[in-house]
Design a protein around this nucleic acid. Sequence first.
DNA 1: GCGACAG
DNA 2: ATCTTGTCGC
Length: 237
Amino acid sequence: MKVHYIHQLPVKIELFKSIQESLSKKVDLTTTLNTNNFKYIAGVDIAYWLDEGIEWGICSIIIIDSVTLKVIEKAFSSGKVTVPYIPGYLAFRELPLIIETVKKLTIAPDLYMFDGNGYLHPLRMGIATHASFFVHKPTIGIAKSYFKVNDAYFEIPKNEVGAFENITIGNEVLGRALRSHKDVRPIFISCGNFIDLDTATEFTLSLINKDSRLPIPVRIADLETKRIRKLLIAKTE
DNA sequence: GCGACAG
DNA sequence: ATCTTGTCGC
């Protein structure tokens, strides 16, 4: 049985340096919270595969125009993944490839949507929140399944499109279970950073189509990630 | 010892 | 996340 120690993860130093840099910058919230400026929305996802016992990952970021809903940019990065998946520490595993991919973007997204949680997290610091310190933009977390936080409570949302229930601990709202399709399991929305939950919900719902319960940017990033993985595996063999 | 566990 | 065929339904 292999034991992993978080404090020895190779990405730790880099992560904290970036957070320090980010905190010393001034973020203009009046600009970032003006939803009229949310024109370009990015979806981020990673797919994995094993090659001779070594784990590889391919990150895909796609940007859509929130008006036309068309993809206007795609960026990819692939590489070895050395950090294991540990519930609660997803960011340490996925951020290195994500950051590498963000650097390749020629268009700056106004909002990032991540596969996973933001504030809905035991330390209120899921991947969407963690990532905001690198991208310096509003971020939200979209999780396909519920990640249990101690003492958190919520009701199952009604079976209607747009129905939601807040996930709370006392008066604190961590996120919400949102029904993006009728007769389909809800998704779990939470703030990453620089955005409020109502706005996050509004944008999520506005980017849902009949193809998926996930918003378009995350959905397309997921498809792209698997398409590229197939190409990379074929190239190796 | 057993179950839970974002991706 | 990943391993995987058909199948039910719109």
